[in-house]
Amino acid sequence: MAKQVPLVDYLQLGEQPHLTAHRCVDCGARYFDRRNACASCFGDRFVEETVATEGEVRAFTIVTFAAPGVPVPFVAAVIDCGGVSVRANLVHVEPDADHVHLGMKVRLVTFPIGTDDDGVEAIAFGFEPLVPAATAGGA
């Protein structure tokens, strides 16, 4: 199997792919990016915490016009994963307002986005509808 690397370091690959957050030991605030100190309480002790892989769409947009090199359309969303807000694309869903809705239940999925010159595959993540849109039809 090809060697793999996650798109971002907070995506953990393996049997059960999931996201991890740096949780502030003092106040519980969570961060996906590297932090020098906690923006909420200024503490500087963090532990790794697993983020739920299922959640609910709290906000979304369907981007049809983006910077050069960014393929459109895509659905950008904020997903509430057990109290942790996650930013991600929604995948495996028609990118239109008839198929994407607020409150939609979704789960994390991973997929390759390309292979580099050393044969290493980069793996990205997105969230897909928990229940495939049965009435979606069309296509």
């Binding site: 971002v8 990016d33 947009t61 983006a66």
Partner: peptide, 28 residues
């Protein structure tokens, strides 16, 4: 970078562009 990203995240992990960010603000 601070996410340890191996490629640009704009369009792969949500959007960095203003129209989409503010669209989500209204949708939220």
């Amino acid at each position: 970078g601070r996410y340890g990203a191996v490629a640009s995240i704009d369009g792969r992990i949500g959007t960095n562009a203003m129209p989409g960010i503010f669209a989500q603000v209204g949708m939220e």
